[in-house]
Amino acid sequence: MKRLILALMLLFAAPVVAQDQLPPAPLAYKQLDDPAQEAKAQRLMETLRCLKCQSQSIADSDAPMAGDMRHQVRTRIAAGEDPEAIRAWLIERYGDYVSYAPQNKPIMWPLFAAPLVFLLIAALLLRGRFRRVKVKEDTA
């Protein structure tokens, strides 16, 4: 989508922002040997926000910092750490902003309640209609 335009514009702007010359972190572009662990890491990385690019997950960014964060995630997963513990660790440092998965906190409750509220409103609006129809048919 237009996000691509963004990507292009960022590329266009790239020479202005200096980049480092170091090779990427060892596990930035290297998968874990254990497929189960790699899948776990991948799932987590897809839900962590790249702080440099603002609108991409670290799983699909070429920014060096995203690579470093992927390295961190893979290292910790390989060490047996739980994905949610890693998420919590990052949230402790960057706040909820870093996680695309909304956390269970009071400020997010309205968001979780929203689908229920929508269904409730729909039910309230429709209830009268169908019920009355039924009554009419019964009396008819």
């Binding site: 170091l22 972190a25 702080l51 440099k52 060096p64 910092m65 470093d68 964060m69 390295h71 961190q72 990052l90 402790e92 440092r93 960057y94």
Partner: peptide, 14 residues
């Protein structure tokens, strides 16, 4: 800090 370990460790993003 070649792997941005300390940077991430203290919540710095740039």
């Amino acid at each position: 800090d070649d792997l941005s370990e300390v940077q991430v460790g203290i919540g710095s993003s740039g």
